Simulated scan of single mutants.
Amino acid sequence: MMDASVPVVAVDGPGGSGKGTVCRLLARELGWHLLDSGAIYRATAIAAARRGIDAGDGAALAPLAAALDLVFEAPLDPADESLVRLDGVDVTGELRQETTGEQASRLAAIAEVREALLQRQRDFRQPPGLVADGRDMGTVVFPDAAVKVFLTASAEERARRRHKQLKEQGVSGSLTALLEEITARDARDQGRAVAPLVPARDAVVIDTTGLSVNQVADRLRELLERSTVYADKD
């Protein structure tokens, strides 16, 4: 069940398009809840690896995903990502590793896993509103979202951003290897039979290549101000 009275801003797009940063910024400004759906899939991948479950075994992954002991805790600094605990253990760092992302992308293509996690994601829709970051927020999870946006950027730009982020974290990485991983993940996400990575038909597509976070956030603010969310307040 979904409470249609609670507004949702659905922001979809591939990794490195800027979704996470702009969604955190917008949620903080609005005082709304935030859903990082990618973190849920990544946590499922970690849980599967710890239990020795193959990322392609839908029959075993579905019940695991449905019963996931997952908690998001607000960070001390609002600009930071949420602290994520899986089975009571902090997995925030492991969540962002490239290998975790690869495994998450594999299991995200399994229909049973997506179905098992659907209601968990919809449960984030609570007053006063929700900013939802993902790959199928506007097409599947919240098809009635007040605002739907699809952020994109060239694969080269997204690889460059990820490489810069890793360097800032003190992690070495090959830009060429990152580009290859991003290209492969895009093909897998866009080509999967269930909830492929595509813009919703009524989504506004924004290419963030060469744009700052604030420029992208300004565009989302404009869309929100023209939406029914603000119209209902008049």
Rank of each mutant, 00 (worst) to 15 (best):
D36A: 01
I110E: 09
V8C: 03
L166S: 12
A74D: 12
D207R: 01
G16R: 08
D207C: 08
E115Y: 02
G129Y: 07
L70P: 05
A48G: 00
S5K: 07
L35E: 12
R185P: 06
P63C: 07
Q103W: 08
P7Y: 00
G101S: 06
V131C: 02
V22K: 05
A60H: 07
A145C: 09
S172E: 14
L151E: 00
A4V: 04
A200W: 11
R125T: 11
D57G: 11
R85H: 08
G52F: 00
D57S: 10
I182A: 14
G191W: 04
L224Y: 06
A177C: 05
E225C: 10
L34D: 03
A132H: 11
R226V: 10
G134V: 10
D189E: 10
Q97A: 15
A231V: 03
A116R: 05
E73Q: 15
A10Q: 04
K148Q: 09
S212A: 07
L130W: 02
H33P: 00
V229T: 04
M1G: 15
I182K: 09
P196S: 13
R24E: 01
L117E: 02
L179W: 00
A79S: 15
R106P: 11
H163L: 05
P199C: 06
Y41C: 14
V140P: 11
G210I: 10
L118W: 03
L118F: 12
T21S: 11
E225I: 08
L35P: 05
E102K: 11
V149T: 13
L118G: 02
V8F: 06
V229K: 00
D57W: 08
A109S: 15
Q165L: 06
F142G: 12
A153K: 09
S105E: 05
S5Y: 03
K167L: 12
E94N: 12
Y41T: 11
D54S: 14
V204D: 14
P128I: 05
L117R: 00
F124N: 06
C23F: 07
A4S: 10
G20M: 03
A177V: 09
R24M: 09
L223H: 13
G88S: 04
D234E: 15
R161N: 02
A116N: 02
D57C: 13
A43W: 13
V91F: 02
V194L: 05
E157Y: 05
A60C: 00
D136Y: 05
R28P: 02
L151K: 04
L76V: 15
G13A: 00
F142T: 13
V149I: 14
A187V: 09
I110G: 07
D144G: 01
L211G: 00
R50L: 00
I46G: 04
A177W: 02
V11C: 05
E29G: 01
A47H: 02
R161V: 06
T21N: 01
R42G: 01
R135N: 03
P143C: 05
